[in-house]
Design a protein around this nucleic acid. Sequence first.
DNA 1: AGAAATTTGTCCGTATGTATC
DNA 2: AGATACATACGGACAAATTTC
Lengths: 140, 140
Amino acid sequence: MPTPHYGQPRYRVIADELRERIESGIIPPGALLPTESALSAEFRASRGTIRQAIAALREDGLATTEHGRGTYVSAYPYDQAWHRDDAGETRQREIAADAELAALFNVQVGTPLIERERVGRNGKKVEKVVRAYRLSRADP
Amino acid sequence: MPTPHYGQPRYRVIADELRERIESGIIPPGALLPTESALSAEFRASRGTIRQAIAALREDGLATTEHGRGTYVSAYPYDQAWHRDDAGETRQREIAADAELAALFNVQVGTPLIERERVGRNGKKVEKVVRAYRLSRADP
DNA sequence: AGAAATTTGTCCGTATGTATC
DNA sequence: AGATACATACGGACAAATTTC
């Protein structure tokens, strides 16, 4: 199989399709996405590519994944619940830009931002907290 | 080769090692990381695993990657002053822990923390702001 | 200007580990 | 305990952007 990602890469196309289903209500909030294997079969893509697509949804706060269970569609756009991630515990929420963040992003105060917070532990001790802020919808 | 990710997965161990080199100055700010192939050879890990490790660094705002070029180490944390760099801008300051951070670190409110802020741009537009918090110095 | 080499990006298939049901 | 589902890791192949010659 060649790898002709003309225009958009495959995982992007799949992510957009899934986003479409979520935002149109075909897959309701709180529901589980089909399993990675099922999506792999449906889109005729490898599981790795499906995982890349789902990772993109997570980045946008549309879904959260739990080991051994599945990927849930976020209840509201953004889920405040902690969930396991690559690197420890992560949660996402939507916040309003304060004066400082608004200035950095060059937007109005109060503009909604996505805050992704990751807690890095060493054993039981919290070593660092990383918060990443981004505007709600980033495309090409 | 088996895949025994006892305790920590391999990509995380590699990411931690690279972070160590960055923060200790072995790989100076603004410099290019070794290529993925080189790291793959050094750590005797597949390229995919190396890419996962680098992705972890990107999440923390420690590095930025450019297609066809390589991965740059983000600017060094300068006190208060902003520093412009191809890989972004960074500043560092000391803050007092608010209630939320204090709870996460399990310390008293007001405990001094180091906040490191990086601004990721795409061209002129700010795409991402990453803030990393650490305890000042004391090692519990 | 053009071709080749370098380097990151995408995708596949497979195997095995780990958490949950 | 067994089945299901996500996580990690390997190796190979080709695409696309950049640099070098």
